[in-house]
Amino acid sequence: MADLKSSLKDAVRKLARQTSVDSLKKRGVKQVNVLGLDRIVSLIDEAVHRSLRHKLLSSEREAVVDATKEEFLKLLRSNEELRARQERAEEESNNLRLEMQRLQGEIDERVAEASVDLVAGYEGENAQILLQIQSLFANAKGADDPGLVAKVQELVVKLVTEQRHEVEIAQAAARDREIHNLQRRLKKLNDSLEFTEQKLDEVSRMKNVEEGVASVYRDVQGLKGGGQEVERKKELMAGLFAANMKLQKGG
C-alpha cells in the first residue's frame, strides 16, 4: 500500500496543471485554498475505502483493492513507457533532420562542382600543348614548314578536345549517378522523418491526453421562451445563420 501511495502522489504531481501567480492575479484571484499532496492522497485513499466498505464484503474488497492497485500501477508504467517512446522518437527525428541537412549539403556541393567553369582551365592547357609542339618542331630537322606545324597543332588540339569531351561525359554521368543516389537517400530520409514525426505526434497525443474541462451543458441550448426580447434575438440569430450559410455553403 505504501507503494501505491507514493505512486498516487507521483500521479497527482504529474497530472497537476501549473499556473503562475500572475495568471491567477489576471483572473482576479487574490486568495487560493491550499491542499497538501499528502492530504489529497489520503482523501483519495479514504474515499475508495469508504465506497468499497459500503458496497462489498471484506474478501471482495481486498480483491478489488488489489485489482485497482494493479491497474493503477499498470497505467503509471504505460505512461512512463509512452514518455520513453516519445523521447526515442524525438531523438530519431532530430538525427534524421541532421542527416538530411548533411546530405543536402553534399548535393549542393556536387552541383556546385559540376558547374565549375572548365573552359578557363582548358584554355591554359591548350596554350601549353601548342607551345610544346612548336618547340618540338623547332628542334626537329627539316620540319620548319609553318603550315605543317599549324596542321599538327590543330590535329593534336582536336584529339585532346575529343578526349576531354569523352571524359567530361563520363564524369558527368558519374556525378549524376551520385546526385541521383543522394537524392534517393534524401527522399527515403524524408519519408522516414515524416513517419517518425507522425509517431511522435501520436505518442504526444497519447501522453498529453488532456481530459479537458466539461461544459456545464449536456444538450444544445438555443433561445427558449417567448417575449419581445427573445423574438428579436431569434431574428438576429436567423440573420447571422443566413450570412454564415452563404459563406460556408454558398447558399
Binding site: 466539461a214 456545464v216 451543458y217 449536456r218 444544445v220 441550448q221 433561445l223 421562451g225
Partner: peptide, 21 residues
C-alpha cells in the same frame, strides 16, 4: 437569464455534452 436558467445540470458523471466557445 435564458442561459443561466436553461441548464445548470452538474457536469459530473456525464459522458457527453455540448461545449460552446
Amino acid at each position: 437569464d435564458e442561459t443561466t436558467n436553461a441548464n445548470d445540470e452538474s457536469a459530473a458523471g456525464k459522458d457527453h455534452g455540448v461545449l460552446y466557445i
